[in-house]
Nucleic acid binder design. Structure first.
Length: 682
DNA sequence: GCCCAATCAGGCTA
DNA sequence: CTAGCCTGATTGGG
């Protein structure tokens, strides 16, 4: 019921009596509150129909069918990597007016950590005590390779243009910028994240490049938005087309770009609606991320604090005023309008970062004035979630309980089907039917090569005792990856090469080197679960960032020529790199294939990857990864997320198309259920 | 239209 | 690890 101290049971008070306020001009509801109306549908009272309710389900008559089908399949639109020679070409070959040192902003670059997500765990347990926690400062900078500034600038521009072209965002129609849809939102966010990561990778490797930044999140967003690559820029009360309840974001700018929440810092977003006589502000969304003392009785209630009203360092105290966002919330309360709520939670693996969860539509039930710390007056608003929406924030709370072992999770068959083989347990869960588990197999987290199947790649290990450093031109591992480290410290791939060269056994770097991601094991808590109609599948309790490593494909490497003879029951657990995969087709234009015909059977021995199902709209893709072992180099297959994946969403990748006609005859009915499902897979 | 203030970021340092 | 400083970007409002 009441939550006690903060709660004022006397109900809303007359704020104008207490504070310096603008008068509420009209309290007559624009829309009838509809609280007890007989309206049907999942969101009673939503939207507040009328002149300013463009939200809600829409048809997209302008979306070209085949274009949307093509573009939402991430894999076939991955831009090719910037060729290495673009960093070596003299300036004179380019006539780009932006190139040239004269355009540089003279801002001195500061020292920075190895990634854009705060402190890294690198540098701990180092042999070399003098290196300290982090390689920083002049010695580190001097180690960086000579950067050809202008050509790097060109490559940043080129990279962006490639992304924009690949995702067909070069010339968005104005109606597409104003009103989005799911496919468009996905394209904008994917482009943003690919560019942001690539931008970070380039900037951390080279000093003082024009357009360089220590805030790739901001830089990438402004660049994209300046080119018109955004959507849902029309503010609206109610749902945002293309964003679903439970969707997650890792940066405020992401929400800005897709019309979820426009302000870059402020917690309350509102719009001014035209009335017959006056303009009135109406709230559209709030972000609750711990800046104030927000609280709620349970997952469906949020006590939100108004904006402003701080206690300054000099001791001066400012009360909150009933203006701007606070006034808008007050109006939304009186109009009984819905407000989108975004919950910010701490990103545990990152530490300093936050994850923003879209928790759906809420209504403000009451407001009051409270005394905040320091004694200033603070507005409080009680948000109550509109019933009937999919679970979002409460799901996160449940997962916390599962992890702590305090919650009862129904349908758990095994707490850890890997029997400790993996770094993290993997639950086996069935809350669908009576199946007791998948057919017997031996769990193994590694890939087994029977025959020496090595590649003629001369491997000379690095000597980076403190872990490989971005921009270290002397590191052979950096060189093999075209001058960059392929991952950040969270295990996120930063760009898309046809091959990732990880450090191997001949390298002297420690096991927690940034370039040993796929060999370091699981980083997210996975579960094998019973799907409704596709057998067993794989999903994650933890949120997964765009580009993050998920797992490798373990099993037995088998002879590619024998794949034709395998029985159909065998091919259920086959990974076949010789198939045509959309992503590989795109990045390579057909030329750069996997170095040798790698086929893996996980029928008898395998890991979690054998449970990943096919989807025509995948959220996971794979990349070949090279690791050396002694004097031999072995190929592995790493799985990475395409976009951000909320907890408990099934992981799936595109199984590709077999190149042999015989195998192609064995097509199976696809049950992925996506809008652009081809209807079958192999 | 220009400028500026306000703001539940996010990186970095002490 | 946390508090605080610093740069930063959008948008509303004057």
């Amino acid at each position: 019921m009441d939550r006690g101290s903060n709660y004022n049971p006397t109900g809303p008070i007359d704020k104008s009596r207490v504070l310096d306020v603008k008068p509420l001009r009209s309290l007559k509801p624009i829309f009838s509150p509809q609280m007890g109306s007989s309206q049907t549908g999942p969101f009673p009272g939503v939207p507040p129909t009328g002149p300013f309710a463009p939200g809600g389900p829409s048809f997209f008559p302008f979306a070209s069918g085949n274009e949307s089908q093509r573009a939402s399949g991430f894999a076939n639109v991955i831009p090719s990597p910037v060729p290495l020679n673009s960093f070596r070409t003299p300036d004179t070959q380019y006539s780009n007016g932006n190139a040239g040192p004269s355009k540089t902003r003279g801002r001195p670059r500061k020292g920075r950590t190895e990634d854009d997500y705060g402190a890294s765990d690198l540098g701990e347990n180092l042999d070399d005590p003098s290196s300290g926690r982090k390689q920083r400062g002049s010695s580190h900078k001097r180690a960086k390779g000579p950067a050809n500034l202008s050509s790097v600038q060109v490559s940043i521009d080129d990279t962006l243009d490639q992304f924009l072209r690949a995702f067909k965002l070069t010339a968005l129609e104005s109606h597409q910028q104003a009103d989005g849809n799911k496919e468009l939102v996905a394209r904008v966010l994917l482009t943003y994240n690919l560019f942001r990561r690539r931008l970070f990778q380039i900037c951390e490797a080279k000093e003082d490049i024009p357009g360089g930044t220590n805030r790739p999140d901001l830089k990438a967003a402004t660049t994209l938005m300046n080119k018109g690559a955004r959507t849902n820029s029309t503010k609206r009360v109610g749902p945002v087309p293309g964003v679903e309840v439970g969707d997650i974001f890792f940066f405020r700018m992401e929400m800005c770009m897709v019309g979820m929440h426009a302000p870059t810092m402020a917690g309350i977003d509102y719009m001014t609606v035209k009335l017959s006589a006056d303009d009135e502000p109406v709230a559209v969304s709030v972000v609750s991320s711990g800046g104030y003392e927000d609280d709620g009785e349970d997952g469906d209630v949020l006590i939100y604090s108004g904006q402003g009203g701080v206690q300054r360092k000099d001791g001066q105290i400012f009360d909150q005023k009933l203006e701007r966002g606070n006034l808008a919330l007050e109006k939304s309360l009186h109009r009984a309008n819905v407000v989108r709520v975004i919950r910010g939670v701490k990103d545990v693996p990152n530490g300093t970062g936050k994850i923003y969860i879209y928790d759906g539509l809420y209504k403000i039930h009451e407001s009051w004035v409270d005394k905040g710390k320091g004694g200033c007056s603070v507005f409080k608003y009680k948000f109550v979630r509109v019933p009937g929406q999919p679970e979002a924030f409460t799901l996160w709370k449940s997962i916390e309980h599962w992890k702590a072992g305090s919650g009862t999770r129904i349908g758990v068959i095994l707490p850890d089907l890997t029997s400790g083989e993996e770094t993290l347990p993997v639950s086996l869960v069935n809350d669908i039917d009576d199946e007791k588990g998948p057919a017997y197999f031996t769990y193994s987290s590694t890939l087994k090569y029977d025959k020496p199947f090595d590649l003629p790649v001369p491997s000379s290990g690095c000597a980076c005792h403190g872990g490989c450093q971005a921009g270290d031109a002397n590191c052979p591992c950096v060189q093999r990856n075209e001058g960059f480290l392929p991952y950040n410290s969270l295990g996120v791939v930063l760009n898309y090469n046809s091959l990732i060269h990880e450090c191997g056994s001949s390298c002297l770097c420690p096991p927690n080197c940034r370039n040993r991601v796929s060999q370091a094991g699981l980083k997210v808590r996975l579960e094998v679960f019973r799907t409704k109609d596709k057998g067993w599948g794989l999903r994650s309790w933890d949120p997964i960032r765009s580009g993050m490593f998920i797992c490798q494909y373990a099993g037995d490497v088998i002879d590619a020529s024998s794949i034709m003879d395998l029985g159909s029951e065998h091919e259920e657990y086959i990974f076949d790199a010789t198939r045509a995969y959309p992503s590989l087709d795109y990045t390579s234009n057909g030329s750069a294939e996997v170095p040798f015909p790698l086929v893996i059977s996980a029928k008898n021995t395998g890991n979690v990857a054998r449970f990943i199902n096919h989807s025509c709209s995948p959220n996971v893709f794979w990349q070949p990864v090279l690791r050396d072992s002694g004097d031999k180099t072995y190929l592995h297959v790493g799985f990475y997320s395409i976009g951000h994946i909320p907890p408990m969403q099934e992981l799936a990748f595109d199984y590709g198309i077999p190149k042999s006609d015989r195998a192609a005859l064995r097509r199976k009915r696809c049950l992925c259920g996506s809008l652009n499902c081809k209807g079958y897979f192999y």
